[in-house]
Simulated assay, not measured.
Amino acid sequence: MSDTPIRLLIADDHVIVRDGIRGMFTGDPGFEVLGEAGDGAQAVQLARTLDPDVVLMDLRMPVMDGVTAIKELARIGARARVLVLTTYDTDKDVLPAIEAGATGYLLKDAGRDDLIRAVRSAARGEAVLSPSVATRLLGRVRAPADPLSARELEILRLIADGATNREAAAQLFISEATVKSHVLHIYAKLGVNDRAAAVAVAFRRGLLSVDGA
């Protein structure tokens, strides 16, 4: 196994980034870059046909984003391990990628030696996390997100039913400004930026259910 090069696929929508990553592995007999993809859909197609050991996957790409591509690779039963390589380390980027099945999550400011070690580890199926991402995930485990208050849950249920802030205020006999304040608190606690994402996360975490409980 050690004599067989690790076969790589690079997925990033910036040509200069792909060139830089390819350059890090060029000349190293331990690696073989099979191809490059400029978006998530192309990454899935190339992974299907080239059968790489590791896909270096950016997250924010046109046509199909990285998280969706990771889910699609899992759906089709691709053998490749996915090592996310991105500039973003926020909860809304990290958690969906890990949940989708990424083996590792590395930031683009990583040095060549760190990237090579990460790829070798990912090829073995070992979890790889950049220090800032590991700290973020540990922080969430040690200090779970604040629970929603009873009032916030009421408002979240109304949002899920399609109510506007004004409509929610009328139903709860409170001011529209108060509803807006509660909505912002809900966003902060759930780590989202809009109403649709808040509802989706709430259902995923069991805070809302189809029967309205």
Score class of each variant (00 low, 15 high):
85 L>F: 14
105 Y>P: 10
125 G>C: 12
118 A>E: 08
107 L>V: 06
116 I>N: 05
120 R>T: 03
135 T>F: 03
107 L>Y: 00
106 L>H: 00
109 D>L: 09
122 A>W: 02
118 A>F: 08
113 D>Y: 01
132 S>F: 03
121 S>G: 09
114 D>K: 10
107 L>T: 06
131 P>M: 03
83 L>N: 11
85 L>A: 08
119 V>T: 03
106 L>T: 03
107 L>C: 03
87 T>S: 14
115 L>M: 12
80 A>D: 10
133 V>M: 03
114 D>S: 13
131 P>C: 10
110 A>L: 02
123 A>L: 10
82 V>C: 05
134 A>C: 08
93 D>H: 11
116 I>Q: 14
129 L>V: 08
133 V>Y: 03
107 L>W: 00
128 V>M: 05
114 D>H: 08
106 L>R: 01
127 A>W: 06
97 A>N: 07
87 T>A: 15
129 L>P: 03
113 D>T: 04
115 L>S: 04
134 A>S: 12
127 A>I: 12
104 G>I: 04
88 Y>H: 13
100 A>N: 09
134 A>W: 00
91 D>K: 01
77 G>H: 09
132 S>Y: 06
127 A>K: 10
119 V>Q: 01
130 S>P: 01
98 I>Y: 05
127 A>S: 14
95 L>K: 02
133 V>P: 00
112 R>E: 15
121 S>L: 14
80 A>G: 06
93 D>F: 08
81 R>V: 13
92 K>F: 13
78 A>C: 14
98 I>E: 09
109 D>H: 11
123 A>T: 04
112 R>K: 13
118 A>I: 02
136 R>T: 07
104 G>A: 10
123 A>N: 11
118 A>W: 01
118 A>Q: 04
86 T>F: 12
106 L>M: 14
124 R>N: 15
90 T>K: 08
89 D>I: 01
87 T>K: 02
95 L>A: 07
94 V>A: 05
89 D>S: 11
111 G>Y: 04
101 G>D: 08
79 R>P: 07
104 G>H: 10
103 T>R: 05
125 G>P: 07
124 R>A: 15
82 V>S: 05
94 V>L: 04
115 L>N: 09
130 S>T: 04
111 G>E: 15
